[in-house]
């Protein structure tokens, strides 16, 4: 009996050999650059290794080191603050523009869409350097504009802002850059969400005498919740693992005031060459982020069902 099942199994494999043949190039690379790294990274989490000498088993040593790693905690804190600074304005702006672009009567639609969307196709290096010019404290055009407003409205007591030189402003500067870069991306996702809402719903609401604001509140918002959740999830991951933006604009500085997790991990790995410890940190944070995501999705779903 067993033999028969086995030969059936073999016949099936041979019959569908093309399936296995066609997916094998992908799976070979996938195994080498995704599957194996995930496992090897877990192995390294329990080792002390600089990449050159023989690795040394340290047990849970890396995990306890994390508890006393001030810069790690500081970078996680910065990640949270940067996220709180940019996610709300970005989401609101993206939602407003998605709403506007969704209106049939809008003129110059292609222009507005391209203007908001171009930032997320441009190389971050270039743009971060342009922003460092704009943010420059004495000769920057942003402070020039602020001073211009200050002259017109003297009672505001506006002063030039040390955007990149001060520990208290560096996170805000990063947040502005990120809003500029990612609003268009979120806008497109929200636009897709809006276009998925059947027009009959709006028509029904209009028959019931709902004004524009009411229609947004009671038709659009509830139906957009999954889209908002998705954008939120992308932003969470984006903030934790952000690299280019911060690396070029501030390189985490001044001090470590704008160092986020992504940059810290890069430095641990490829400046300090602490391969074991870096793997441990990467793993722990990835697992934590995974559970935060899961919890977030569950809360949105529960609210959905409560309705």
């Amino acid at each position: 009996m067993k033999n028969e099942a086995e030969s059936q199994w073999r016949r099936d494999i041979i019959k569908y050999r093309h399936f296995y043949l066609f997916i094998s190039p992908f799976f070979i690379l996938f195994a080498a650059f995704s599957l194996y790294p995930v496992l090897f990274s877990l192995f390294l989490s329990f080792m002390k290794w600089n990449g050159l000498t023989q690795w040394k088993w340290v047990g849970l040593g890396n995990f306890t080191s994390m508890l006393y790693d001030d810069i790690l905690w500081r970078s996680l804190w910065n990640t949270l603050i940067i996220g709180l600074l940019y996610i709300p304005p970005m989401m609101i702006l993206a939602f407003i523009f998605a709403q506007v672009l969704n209106a049939q009567w809008l003129k110059l639609r292609a222009f507005y869409r391209a203007a908001l969307f171009l930032p997320c196709v441009t190389p971050m290096v270039v743009i971060a350097i342009v922003f460092s010019l704009i943010f420059s404290s004495e000769k920057g055009v942003l402070n020039y504009a602020i001073m211009g407003v200050g002259h017109m409205l003297p009672f505001l007591h506006l002063k030039p802002i040390p955007w990149l030189e001060s520990e208290s402003w560096s996170k805000t500067s990063v947040a502005i850059l990120v809003v500029w870069r990612w609003t268009g991306y979120n806008m497109i996702i929200m636009l897709a969400g809006l276009q998925g809402i059947p027009t009959e719903y709006y028509e029904a609401a209009m028959v019931d005498g709902a004004g524009m604001w009411e229609r947004v509140k009671s038709v659009t918002m509830p139906l957009m919740r999954p889209t908002f959740a998705f954008c939120g999830l992308l932003s969470l991951l984006g903030t934790v693992y952000m690299f280019d933006e911060i690396f070029v604009l501030t390189n985490g500085g001044p001090g470590v005031s704008s160092m986020n997790f992504g940059l810290y991990l890069f430095n641990l790995s490829f400046t300090d060459f602490k391969f074991g410890y870096a793997s441990c940190v990467a793993y722990t944070v990835a697992v934590a982020v995974f559970f935060i995501t899961l919890a977030g999705l569950r809360i949105t779903r529960q609210r959905e069902e409560a309705k």
Binding site: F33, S34, Y36, P37, V38, F40, S41, L44, L237, Y241, G262, L265, F266, S269, F275, A278, S279, A282, Y283, V285, A286, V289
Partner: peptide
């Protein structure tokens, strides 16, 4: 799987 985990390997 985030890229950060697979970086070093």
């Amino acid at each position: 799987i985030p890229g950060a985990v697979t970086l070093i390997p």
